[in-house]
């Protein structure tokens, strides 16, 4: 599947209505729950998604991550991951940029 760039740093995104993000003790991971299924997230995916609150623009999410993980330049990785998450319907822009 080709991923087009549709998200910008000033977009505000939120978790899709049918998904719920939560920490799963038994999996030792963040998971996305949805009707009749579950996605177990990698550590980095979990760290990104738990900062998606429907209020902060993506730029602030990146900044927040770079504070939590000093020394890393995360902008491209975060955008790339969020594009994939958007393609899969996990997140969507809250308002048109």
């Amino acid at each position: 599947m080709s991923v087009e760039t549709r998200l910008n740093l000033d977009d505000i995104v939120e978790i899709g209505r049918q998904f719920r993000l939560q920490w799963e003790q038994a999996q030792q991971a963040y998971v996305l729950l949805y009707p009749e299924g579950m996605v177990k997230l990698s550590q980095s995916a979990g760290e990104i998604l738990k900062r998606i609150d429907g209020k902060l623009p993506i730029a602030d999410v990146v900044e927040n991550l770079e504070q939590a993980f000093p020394g890393a330049n995360l902008q491209q990785d975060v955008l790339k991951f969020l594009e994939v998450a958007y393609e899969r319907g996990w997140i969507h822009p809250k308002q048109a940029s």
Partner: peptide, 8 residues
């Protein structure tokens, strides 16, 4: 407690 997430 066993780790079940989906409940029907």
């Amino acid at each position: 407690e066993l780790g079940v997430t989906q409940l029907g």
